[in-house]
Write a protein that binds this DNA or RNA. Structure first.
Lengths: 337, 337
DNA sequence: GCGTACAACTTATGCGCAAAAGGAACCGCC
DNA sequence: GGCGGTTCCTTTTGCGCATAAGTTGTACGC
């Protein structure tokens, strides 16, 4: 790889002059030499050494995207088929702004922070990482951080969070079920934290507003580990007759549940109505097609990246940015009277 | 961020001594000072400046992962829900080897090569990038390159390719259809290049081995652009009565087609048998569950990364590595007599 | 004809690190 | 008691770049 020094030598001028041309500093160099240098640069296809540049400038032009990883396959976000849209959104946005993306998958916020300070990353996007330990570590590290889908109270004080109006989403779809005559409505999820908790709250609120009492038996817990999922699904199917509808926390679970129900001869929506959340291909191509709550996952990535870029440019951004959801009515809900 | 120089100053010793401790060069430094330095390093949580290190060492510890992008959503690989598994495989493997991953999404091989030489990336994994122009550019750039799913004849001469035995996969599943009594079998795809061509060839070979003649009307072309897909699906459904089975080039298309067929009252597998390729959630949770060809997409990422790491360590690797496929028999094929 | 201003350069410095080269002190050995 | 070999340090150099500071030449104003 050719260096500025070598170019300067061959053109018989100083490195500063070459550097000035590269940075388009007009007024510092005559049109004549400028052209000479530019032509040479084009000829040799000069590419700056980023390490040297970053060292001199104390910046990196790197934005880190850290994804939560856990032991279990479907708790490891990179294994969620639809994260790739989010990744794509982030990459596209920052690339257009002249940044590069370093992807990091880990469950250990502290490890990520170390990595981030090693690389002198200019900014960081954390997806699915809660962890108050991470917040403590990131305090030292002064660079901008934007979170995605974090409901950590502590975190929200420190960083901008880009999320969804999860509560409104499940509120709307639960309300839709109620309008269709349903009263015995269950909620299915694998945990009661963060995003899932917000969705649960929306569901509860819709019940409350309709004067329907929520009981803890309405919560159907699915255990997603491959060793337990079959047993877990079996229990849920056995209890399905207690309800006329089930609000699932995600399309993935909705579709998984529907497959299990159909395998047991329980028909959707005739015997039971099922709704999801996310609106991805899984529900779209299922028959009957899944009634669900739409979210634009790519927009989440784009918004997070945009927000970070704003911070990088020195602007303040709000603590909480909530993207809207939209009810998508398809064929898995039966009107009952 | 604290520097070696600052540490040396505070401990009243030279930077080289500190650097030696950091690099664990025993024998160069007494146990006494070693401990002193180590304690200090732990205390201040020293993190090296990678830019400086890389500049001095002329390496980067970065591995680039470049994904093909195209204008249309489903031709943009990052939008394929199942690429994330591959990304996860690559990330995990290289992280365990002490490397970092830079993700790059572009359709322009030349642009990628520029980026790659800017960052002085140690090695590169190209996924879905064919382009003989890219090969030419990469000639200049001497770093190791591993391709995934590339069928470029020219490319194979230069790089190791990690792929699938695509031909065998469609051969096996077509053969299975034939064994179930099918003779009028169509093949559905959106193009006839690379991976899709190999899958088409496997299908043709199975037909030939069974003495069934292949006609060009057996090829059902699907147009995946959102503006055209409905019309395209409609044409295909209208022609479905010409066949008793359709081999789809991917699970996504198989599931998309099944939804369209069901919407038109054509039943799978009673009226027509459908098989896919990939074995992902889409087919797994569909009812009837999709008969398909399994591939381990994460393994592709892991293998590509491993291969690259081997090259980085100075080893030669074979030009072509083909991962096996496996027939997964479920419920979308009817036995006919 | 002297000072000022400015254009168009060059020289010199430092970013943080790694490593080559250079020393000083000590040991054992013939 | 001089010499090679260790051990444990320090000094120095340079990676490629950006930039502050310095230099020259020339035009201009009065």
């Amino acid at each position: 790889m050719i260096t500025i020094k070598e170019i300067a030598k061959q053109l018989n001028m100083s490195t500063t002059t070459v550097s000035n041309v590269i940075h388009g500093k007009t007024g510092e160099v005559s049109d004549d030499t400028k052209k000479k240098v530019q032509d040479f640069l084009d000829k040799v296809d000069y590419v700056p050494n980023i390490n040297a540049r970053n060292l001199a400038q104390n910046e990196s032009k790197i934005i880190g995207l850290a994804l939560k990883a856990r032991a279990d396959k479907y708790e490891n976000l990179i294994m969620d088929p639809f994260v790739s849209e989010l990744i794509g959104g982030v990459e596209e946005t920052i690339r257009n702004a002249g940044y590069f993306m370093m992807l990091y998958i880990s469950s250990d916020t502290v490890e990520i922070m170390r990595h981030v300070s090693t690389w002198n990353v200019d900014g960081l996007i954390l997806f699915g990482m809660i962890g108050d330990d991470g917040i403590r570590v990131s305090e030292k590290y002064k660079k901008p951080i934007v979170c995605i889908d974090t409901y950590s109270i502590e975190g929200l004080k420190h960083f901008t969070n880009v999320g969804l109006d999860d509560e409104q989403g499940t509120y709307d779809i639960t309300n839709y079920l109620i309008k269709q005559g349903h009263k015995k409505i269950a909620f299915l999820s694998d945990n009661m934290n963060g995003v899932d908790l917000a969705r649960l709250n929306g569901y509860k609120k819709a019940l409350a507003d309709a004067g329907i009492k929520y009981k803890s038996t309405n919560f159907l817990k699915i255990r997603p580990r491959s060793s337990e999922i079959e047993e877990s699904l079996d229990e849920i199917c056995k209890r399905s007759s207690e309800f006329t509808a089930i609000v699932c926390v995600s399309d993935l679970y909705a579709v998984t549940l529907m497959a299990a129900l159909e395998d047991r001869g329980i028909s959707v929506p005739d015997d039971i109505s099922i709704v999801g959340f996310d609106d991805n291909m899984l529900g779209k191509y299922h028959r009957p097609a899944l009634t669900t709550v739409h979210q634009d996952i790519k927009a989440k990535g784009v918004t997070a990246a945009d927000t970070l870029l704003k911070q990088l440019a020195g602007h303040k951004t709000p603590n909480q940015i909530q993207l809207p959801t939209k009810l998508v009515i398809r064929d898995t809900v039966k009107k009952i009277s």
